[in-house]
Structures are given as structure tokens and as C-alpha cells.
Design a protein around this nucleic acid. Structure first.
Lengths: 116, 116
DNA sequence: TTTCAGTACCTTGTATTGCAAAGTATATTT
DNA sequence: AAATATACTTTGCAATACAAGGTACTGAAA
């Protein structure tokens, strides 16, 4: 029984939402984002994050600025655009619908078993 | 801005959970499941559902029985196996983690904007 | 100067899976 | 027999999470 794969599948699609939520609080660069998500108990790896950030930037939901670092190479700080903020509100709605759906399905009482 | 695609992506992975939740209440056949999910505001189509049911059956999480119908061809009634019930409890845990993550990310206050 | 370690960004290939669209099969009605 | 309704199935495509490996810049040690 592969629970890990199921959890990974559950994360699909949620990641985009979580990253936008995080960036709504303020700009961050990739390693930063990975760290913050980990603190929120969401494991993400670079190979997942970088293409996602690039896609969101190409869709004009994010923008970035290079910033010098006191130690190490410069960092790409990502931030939400106005479009990104609006999109985030749509995703808030989608998330609300989804939790509502799960609550409906969870709350129903277990029917009598028909199969013998 | 393609909201539909994002919502579709959010559904990914959740579908498996929702279907197991639904079948936990009692056996159902495919059209039945589609109808019940629609009532819970989750749109699923046949091309999505049938392969998923087959996969869950092959993983021994579901089983089915043919049942005659008063009108139309016989129906495949799916039900959870014991493994399926156990797996569902794991998914309950994963779902709780995910909602927790989103709540953490949602609740944080918006930081000061660094980018100009 | 060269080398090494640390940090950060990026790319390629693979597997999974949702979905549209089309197909097959059975039962009932005309 | 043909048409309709119901139900199950398959094929091909697109999106995306992830593992694994690669590139580039910085600063300190050899």
C-alpha cells in the first residue's frame, strides 16, 4: 500500500496554491520557499519548484528581481503581480469548494452494505 | 488567466480520496458515483472515473459485483475492501495534513514588501 | 593562483493521471 | 429489426511532480 504516492498526488495542484499563498505574504527566493513550505509540512524539491516558478512567471502571475546576497550568489526574489493576487483569490475560492466537497462526503452516514 | 485548469489540477489526487470516501458510505456503480460527486460539487467524467476504478480494484482497494438492473444493462457495484478501508484512513490523515498546511500558509500575516 | 566547499539556479527524462472523444455491449422500446 | 437508453471501456494527449544530474557564482583555504 503506497501511501507516499497518494500523498504526492494529493499535493498536485495544491502546490501552486500554496506557493502563491506564501508569496502573498512577501517576496522570497527558491530555497527560501522550500524552507518555508517545509515548516508548513509540505515537502517540495528543487526539480518541482523551479519549473513551477518559471511557469507562473511566464503566465504573468509572478515577477522576480535579482538581489545580492551577503554570502553566495545573487538570488531571484519572486513576488506576486496584480494578476497573481487576483488569481490567488480565484484559487481561494477553488480551495473552499474543495474542502466543502470533502466535508459533504465525509459527513454522510455510512449506508447499509448491499453486497454480501 | 486559466482558472479552470488550476481547479482541475487541484482536483487531481483529491479524486481518489473523494471516491473512497463516497464508497465508504456504501457500494455504488460508476454512473451513480458520478452523480453523487456532482451533488457534492465535484465534476467527474467517465473517462476519468473508469480507469481510476480499475486501478483501485487492481490495487485491491476496491472490489465489485455485477448486479442486474431493472432498466438497462447490469451494473458493476464497487465497494471498499478491508485494505481499502485502511487506505482511506491513511488518506484521511493526508487530507488533514494538507488542510493544516494551507491554514498555516493562509493565516500568516502579510510581510512588508521588499521589492520596490 | 588554484582548489574546494557552499549556495543558488536550471534542465532532462520518466511516471502518473485527468480528460476528451470515440468505441463496445446490453436491454428496452418502437 | 431498428432506434434509443444505459453502462462499461479504450485510446491518445497534456499537465506536472520528481529524481538525478548539471551550471554558475562566491569566498576561503591550500
Amino acid at each position: 500500500m503506497n501511501t507516499e504516492n497518494a500523498k504526492s498526488q494529493m499535493r498536485k495542484g495544491m502546490l501552486e496554491y500554496c506557493i502563491l499563498l506564501l508569496l502573498h505574504k512577501g517576496p522570497a527566493y527558491a530555497s527560501d520557499i522550500i524552507q518555508q513550505l517545509k515548516e508548513a509540512q509540505l515537502i517540495v524539491v528543487e526539480g518541482t519548484l523551479y519549473p513551477l516558478l518559471t511557469r507562473l512567471k511566464n503566465d504573468r502571475l509572478l515577477r522576480y528581481e535579482w538581489q545580492e546576497s551577503t554570502q553566495g550568489p545573487p538570488r531571484k526574489y519572486y513576488a506576486l503581480t496584480l494578476d497573481g493576487e487576483e488569481f490567488l483569490r480565484h484559487l481561494d475560492g477553488a480551495w473552499n469548494e474543495l474542502t466543502n466537497t470533502v466535508n459533504i462526503l465525509r459527513s454522510g452516514s455510512k449506508a447499509e452494505v448491499i453486497l454480501t
